[in-house]
Amino acid sequence: MVNYSVSSDSLHVPQDKLHKKGVFDSIRRDFIVAFSQWDFDPLALTNPFSKDKDKCSSSSVHIWQGCEDKVVPMELQRFVSQKLPWVKYHEVTQGGHLLVYDKDTCELILRSLLLGEEEHSHFLYKPCDASAPS
C-alpha cells in the first residue's frame, strides 16, 4: 500500500484552510477520482459544445493546471489537452493543486471565464517549461 503525505506547502494552500472540511473533502475526492477505475475512457470524449444548430456554441472546457501540483501531474494534463484539442489548457506557474484558493489566481480565472479578460493573465498562463504544448 502506498502512503501519501500531503502538506499545505505541497498544495499551495495556507495551513488553516487545509483543515477546513470543504478543502479536506475536495482533496479526498480528487484522490478518489485520480486512483479509481473509471467506467469510460476520458480520451474518447467528444466536444460537448461542438457547433450544432440546436446547441449554444459559445461554451468551452478549460483546464487550469498548477505547475507545482503534487496531486495531478502536469504531464498528464498536457497529454489530455493534446489528445482533446477542444480543451483550452492553461498552466499556472506558481500554482499548486488548490490554486483556486489563491485569491488573485481565482479572480483572474473567473475574469477569463466570465468576462473574456486575458490581458492580465499573462503572468499566470506561461508554460512551466520548454516542453509545454504551444
Rank of each mutant, 00 (worst) to 15 (best):
M1D: 11
V2S: 08
V2I: 06
Y4L: 14
V6N: 03
S7R: 12
S8N: 14
D9L: 10
L11C: 03
H12N: 11
H12C: 14
H12L: 13
Q15E: 10
Q15G: 03
D16F: 10
K17Y: 11
L18I: 11
H19L: 06
K20P: 01
K20F: 00
K21W: 00
G22I: 13
G22Q: 04
G22M: 03
F24A: 09
F24M: 03
S26E: 01
R29G: 01
R29Y: 02
D30Q: 13
F31C: 11
F31N: 04
F31W: 04
V33E: 00
A34E: 04
A34L: 14
A34K: 14
S36K: 07
Q37N: 13
W38I: 07
W38Q: 07
D39L: 04
F40H: 09
P42E: 08
P42D: 00
A44H: 11
L45D: 02
N47I: 11
N47T: 10
N47Q: 04
P48G: 04
F49D: 02
F49C: 12
F49E: 03
D52R: 12
K53W: 10
D54I: 04
S60P: 00
S60V: 06
V61L: 12
H62D: 12
H62S: 14
I63R: 01
I63P: 04
I63D: 01
W64K: 02
W64N: 05
W64L: 09
G66A: 12
E68Q: 15
E68G: 10
D69L: 08
D69H: 11
V72A: 03
E75C: 07
R78M: 02
R78L: 01
F79Q: 08
V80K: 02
K83A: 14
L84P: 02
L84R: 06
P85Q: 10
W86M: 07
V87M: 06
H90F: 14
E91V: 07
V92D: 00
T93C: 05
Q94T: 15
G96L: 02
H97Y: 08
L98Y: 02
V100Y: 05
D102N: 15
D102T: 12
D104P: 02
C106K: 05
E107W: 05
L108C: 08
L108W: 00
I109E: 03
S112N: 12
S112Q: 11
S112K: 13
L113W: 10
E117C: 10
E117L: 01
E118C: 00
E119G: 02
E119N: 07
H120G: 08
H122S: 13
F123E: 01
L124I: 13
L124W: 06
L124C: 06
P127T: 14
C128E: 07
C128A: 13
C128Q: 05
D129W: 09
S131R: 08
S131D: 13
S131Q: 13
A132P: 00
A132D: 06
S134R: 07
S134P: 04
